[in-house]
Amino acid sequence: MRQTELHLTDEDRAAVDEIRRKGRHHAREVNRAHVLHSLDRGVPEAQIMAVLGLGRTAVWRTRLAYLQGGIDLAVFDLARPGRPRQYGTDDEARVMALACSAPPAGQKRWTLAQLECAARQEPGLGRMGRETVRRILRKTTANPGAG
């Protein structure tokens, strides 16, 4: 198997050694730093894969990322955008206030279905479902069933 050579700069070599020594990084970041260190020293890919328990593509991607964008791109994960929160803390506070209020007439306590219906009648919470109400209540120590 043909191996492409990789040579780290002095600054990058020092950064990789720092990541390898300190325990303040994720395991995959430390593994990538080990890959870069090993490639810089000329260790064969097969030996890197065997010792670190990585696949060939992980070694290749780490090398390619370093060549394209340096150590930051090769070692550290890019931030993922994720889905934005649909309901903010103000909306959660409104649901909590509703759960802490008096239950509907003729009832001793709130049920999740009743809280869902009441929350849907609030302005801005029209699409809130039962599972969302349950998660909001679970975040706190509130127990709408305790009476």
Rank of each mutant, 00 (worst) to 15 (best):
P123I: 15
S38L: 09
R130D: 05
M96R: 14
M128S: 11
G126W: 13
V51C: 00
Y66K: 00
A50C: 01
L64Y: 03
D77S: 09
L8W: 05
D72Y: 05
T141I: 04
R20M: 13
R20S: 08
R109C: 04
A50G: 07
Q107D: 08
D40T: 02
V35P: 03
G53C: 10
Q86V: 14
A105T: 09
L98A: 10
D12G: 03
R83A: 11
R56N: 06
R85K: 15
T4R: 07
S101Y: 05
I48Y: 01
K139D: 07
A65P: 06
G124C: 13
L137G: 02
R120T: 03
F76P: 09
T9H: 02
R80T: 12
R61F: 02
L73T: 11
D10M: 07
L137Q: 01
H7R: 14
A14D: 09
P103M: 00
L98T: 14
R134P: 15
W110N: 02
I71S: 01
A93K: 12
K108F: 02
G82S: 13
T9I: 01
P44D: 04
L125A: 10
A93C: 08
N31L: 13
E131G: 07
V30G: 09
E122H: 14
N31G: 04
P123H: 15
Y66P: 03
E18D: 08
L6N: 02
D40W: 07
G106T: 00
P144H: 07
E18N: 03
V30D: 12
T111K: 01
R85Y: 13
V95A: 07
P104Y: 05
A99T: 07
A102N: 03
L115T: 06
E92I: 13
M96K: 10
R63C: 00
D12A: 07
T132N: 10
R20D: 12
T141D: 13
V75H: 12
H25R: 10
P104R: 07
R13F: 08
G147R: 05
R21P: 03
T9S: 10
A142N: 02
R130H: 06
M1V: 11
P123E: 14
E11Y: 01
W60F: 01
L8N: 04
G147T: 03
A15P: 01
D40H: 14
T62L: 00
Q86P: 12
R61N: 06
K22F: 11
P104D: 05
V35T: 05
E11W: 02
Q3R: 11
A65W: 03
R85F: 11
K139F: 12
